[in-house]
Amino acid sequence: MEVLVTGGSGQLGRTLVPALQAAGHDVRQMSRRGAGPGGVRGDLATGRDLAQAVRGAEVVVHAASDPRGNPWEVDVAGTRRLVQALDRGRLRHLVYVSIVGVDRVPFGYYRAKYAAEQVLLASGLPVTLARVTQFHPFVDEMLTTARRGPVLIVPMGWTAAPVDVGEAAGFLTELAGGQPTGDVVEFGGPEDLSAGDLARAWAAAREPGVRVVSTPLPGKLSAAFREGGVLPGARAARGRRTYGEHLRGV
């Protein structure tokens, strides 16, 4: 099928595009610059070149996001622009890449992703909302940032189920080739791990000698993480590659 991937130049997109191509699809990757093989220009924040970028798409995997900028403009308003630009007569399936916990965790970026989900559910388009847990490299980045010299301080009681990017791309590729569910599906890593366990594994592999300290954090956001707000539900699909295997490069 003719597949358009928004956010094709991002971490997930760079793995997802070849996975879709390997499945036999004709894939275009949309970004603001339109760089790379099969790249087309389209700006969700302004709508510039969007109609041309989506022309002919039978399947859209909507992975574009702006967590460090203005997600309300890109993720929410940009999703509205995407909905308006799509050819409803040709579109068979739109898969939206969201995050496990967007409906439970009181965090601004998550609220924007949840609002984008509601835009799609109200659009009347054939959609599937794919909520995925945090990728392994994201956990690496957070732990690197949290390190203070010989000490790595992490929130006490927080839990997560980090997932391999390649396995997430494979899951999304299967979804894209299937029928829309009109609802939420979840995909997470194989293990539910505390922040302390993740930090100790990271320190042992990357920074031996760093001491991990777990400390309680107050507030609603911390409570949501302690209560498993970012863990996939019982019916979620799960990957196989563990965070430990990621750290060992296997």
Rank of each mutant, 00 (worst) to 15 (best):
R238V: 05
V97K: 00
S98E: 06
V17G: 02
R48P: 01
R238L: 15
L44N: 00
R28S: 02
A224Y: 02
R14E: 14
D26L: 12
R147E: 14
G39H: 08
T215M: 15
A176P: 01
E191H: 11
M142C: 14
R55P: 00
V250F: 02
S214M: 11
V97M: 00
E227K: 13
I153R: 15
V212N: 11
A234L: 13
R33N: 12
V95N: 01
E191N: 13
R238A: 14
G249D: 07
G101D: 05
G182E: 01
M1D: 05
R211F: 14
A116I: 12
T46L: 08
G13E: 05
V213Q: 09
E207K: 12
Y243G: 05
G10H: 01
L129S: 01
G7M: 08
V97F: 02
G36N: 06
V185L: 07
F135W: 09
L247Y: 08
E191K: 12
R241Q: 04
G188E: 01
A35E: 13
A63M: 07
A45I: 10
A130Q: 02
D140F: 11
L172W: 08
Y109D: 07
P37V: 10
V83N: 04
R90S: 06
F138V: 09
E141T: 14
A64F: 06
G108F: 03
K113A: 07
L129N: 01
T145A: 15
G56M: 07
A115F: 02
G228E: 09
R88N: 10
A130S: 10
L120K: 06
P137F: 08
L152S: 09
W158I: 08
A168G: 00
V59A: 03
P180Y: 10
L175Y: 04
V139C: 07
G229I: 06
H25Y: 05
T181F: 02
V54E: 08
D49C: 11
A205D: 01
G69Y: 07
V213K: 10
P218Y: 05
V40H: 12
L12D: 00
L44V: 10
A77M: 02
R88M: 03
Q179E: 13
T145Q: 15
P37I: 07
R200F: 10
R131K: 03
Q118R: 15
G149Y: 14
A204K: 11
G182L: 10
G209R: 12
E141V: 09
L125Q: 01
D164R: 04
G219K: 04
G219N: 11
D87F: 13
Y110V: 03
A77C: 07
D75K: 03
V151P: 12
P190M: 10
A22C: 04
A85G: 09
E73G: 07
G189L: 04
H25E: 10
V60N: 02
L217Q: 14
G101I: 08
F107C: 12
G239D: 02
Q52A: 15
V102H: 00
P232A: 09
H62D: 09
R111S: 11
T144R: 15
Q11C: 04
L91P: 01
R92D: 03
R111L: 15
G244E: 15
A146K: 14
A64G: 00
L143T: 00
N70T: 13
A223K: 14
A161G: 12
A115H: 05
R90Q: 11
R90A: 07
D183C: 01
Y110A: 13
R211K: 14
V210Q: 12
